[in-house]
Write a protein that binds this DNA or RNA. Structure first.
Lengths: 359, 359
DNA sequence: TTAATTTTCGGAAACGTTTCCTATTTTTCT
DNA sequence: AGAAAAATAGGAAACGTTTCCGAAAATTAA
């Protein structure tokens, strides 16, 4: 790391900040020869002002470079035009898509979004809800991962509107928040598919048991009975967890012939490790993930996955939140669910198992 | 998409927001039998208050659930404890790493970050700087992509501290901002490597010419002369651009024997398409990308890449910004540069080109 | 004990807006 | 034309804090 200090023209640089006087609405009023109330009307299009004086004021504002002080406005009108977005980790899976979608939607409505990472940590998730008032924010979009038990209580107690992006948990029906998620268990789609292509020893490779538990439930529920040796609970949702899962399954005397991975990262880890181990996908073992991120199309074999509609879900969650803010919290709480879509790729294609040829 | 409206217990939910009275510092003061100045001293640890009354007040605050109004505080003390982070697109490449790193660092210092996507759009990049004052924010971290010509001017004119995360452009030396980036051209590393392993027809596959131009310059400068047919400028930094680049090079009568891709996405697109076309990597063509994201290790072959230290760069940019905010803009502007690191993987391994065997 | 300090505290003035309420001015109607 | 109504403007009171300044109380010094 090379560090180079800037030397020239520095006096100037520092003085700039210290000197420059902030121009206020009063300065504008004085210059324009009107009252401050009038200037306020000019900037807010609140009417009750003649077109002529409005034009004049606007021009003077332009000249003087006046910018209304947002804190003062917020103090007065009691809203900040900001919402908070709390996600587990901006670096993971489809979360960038979600963050993007929320930001774009918010921007269209004149809102900014402050970004918070909870690390999927139960305490952090509670903390965010508890302190959302301190946050200087008109509403909160939260994508829980840990789902601490008291989360719903806390949300119900909060006075700021909350919108929940919900993957992987069936939420208490009377949570006082809009919640958007998926209509059917995405895991169910995976299991049905694997069964349909004739796999009989289907394994589950996942995150900790208590996280995104619905995905594991889908596994249990799709099977007459689960063979515990075919279930691998990892530490997280990472590539490495996939690698370890692959090693684990490979170590079994009787390997599975299909693996349902909790997400694409894990699926990719598995496929990758299997390639090193000489296990053929999908001939020996089919693998299916969830998330449908770009990378499933880049591995070889390409990996089947379920699209969980992150962008759409996030956009709607944002719109519902903003609507609720606009309505001052009134209105029925909405539950909206998108339909996940299975995309079949090479990793789980039906293989014709040829019996030894006769001719 | 299924939409289900919530029906029960709704009256309660809506009234909550409307009814709940906000408790102010004055309420606390009254209840505690002290002046509001004293309460203020209690919350801010500003001293000049006896331990006893402080404890009393703190307890009452707890009881009443008082939360100071951030807008009022900001108005008074003229800072919001928020910084803005403007990036091209949170969904791309290493930007999630950067966003994470900025958020974590800011959080440690008691700051929140508001997230803004510029789409790598010149107008948007200027707009952010111009309107940073409106943003309700104490400082700005910007990662430019388009680098509009007037950007530096605008930054120099701004009174709020700016920190630049700089990839791909040599910046005017006297920009009034801290800037952190890379010490050597990351592209240079790639080119030196490709030359060293004996490649002679090296191609460049990139984004538009005017974006991240330093990466292209590194290409030009590393070669005695450039063959224009070996340069492919794409539309963006995407996988698809890589695919198109591969198609283009494949269409040449005389293919390159190595490709320096502007980033990993493009490199992966190229490798993927080559696989479909039956072009062997690295035997026929070596491919190297830049960014060193996880996915370069997941493709086959694994792809060589250059780590551009996103997390470290972002952390430092944030720390410099916060320091400057703390110092009220004073102090020399810093230029800090990290050393990029080349990681060689299968896609550019030296191949022993065997001549037809003699024996 | 009294005087001189030092602590502790409250009043009140900002901070920069929005908005209510009046007072003007302008327009419209008869 | 005058009266009534409508449009336009300004003064001043909030909004909820922090902080200056001076007063009262507590502590220390003499």
């Amino acid at each position: 790391m090379v560090r180079i200090a800037e030397n020239d023209s520095n006096k100037e640089g520092t003085s700039l900040l210290a000197t420059k006087k902030k121009v206020t609405i009063e300065d504008v009023a004085k210059k324009a020869g009107v009252g401050i109330a009038t200037v306020s009307r000019a900037i807010n299009n609140s009417g009750g002002i003649s077109p002529k004086t409005k034009a004049l004021i606007l021009q003077i504002i332009e000249e003087m470079g006046f910018i209304p002080n947002t804190s003062a406005q917020s103090l007065k009108v009691r809203q900040t035009n900001q919402i908070a977005l709390a996600v587990p980790d901006i670096r993971n899976a489809i979360i960038p898509d979600i963050a993007w979608s929320v930001e774009q939607t918010a921007k269209q409505h004149g809102y900014r979004v402050v970004q918070i990472n909870t690390s999927g940590n139960a305490r952090a998730e509670l903390e965010i809800v508890r302190e959302v008032k301190k946050l200087h924010v008109d509403g909160l979009i939260i994508m829980p991962l840990a789902y601490p038990k008291t989360l719903v209580d806390l949300i119900n107690k909060t006075t700021v509107p909350v919108s929940i992006i919900n993957y992987g948990k069936k939420l208490d029906d009377n949570v006082k928040a809009d919640v958007v998620g998926l209509a059917s268990q995405e895991g169910r789609l995976v299991m049905e598919h694997l069964i349909k292509i004739g796999r009989t020893r289907i394994a589950y490779a996942g995150a900790p048991k208590n996280k995104i538990e619905e995905r594991y439930f889908a596994y249990e529920q799709s099977l007459p009975q689960v063979d515990p040796s075919l279930v691998y609970f990892g530490e997280d949702f990472s590539f490495e967890t996939g690698v370890r899962a692959a090693d684990y399954f490979y170590s079994l005397k009787h390997m599975p012939d299909a693996i349902y991975a909790v997400n694409d990262m894990v699926a990719i880890g598995i496929v990758n490790r299997f390639k090193e181990l000489g296990v053929r996908v999908p001939e020996d073992v089919a693998v299916v993930g969830i998330d449908n991120n770009l990378w499933t199309t880049v591995t070889s074999p390409q990996i089947s996955s379920v699209s969980i509609m992150g962008g759409e879900v996030a956009r709607l969650a944002t719109e519902l939140l903003l609507k609720r803010i606009r309505d001052n919290g009134a209105g029925e709480y909405e539950r909206v669910q998108f339909e996940p879509r299975l995309i079949v790729r090479e990793s789980s294609v039906a293989v014709i198992r040829q019996s030894p040829s006769i001719s």
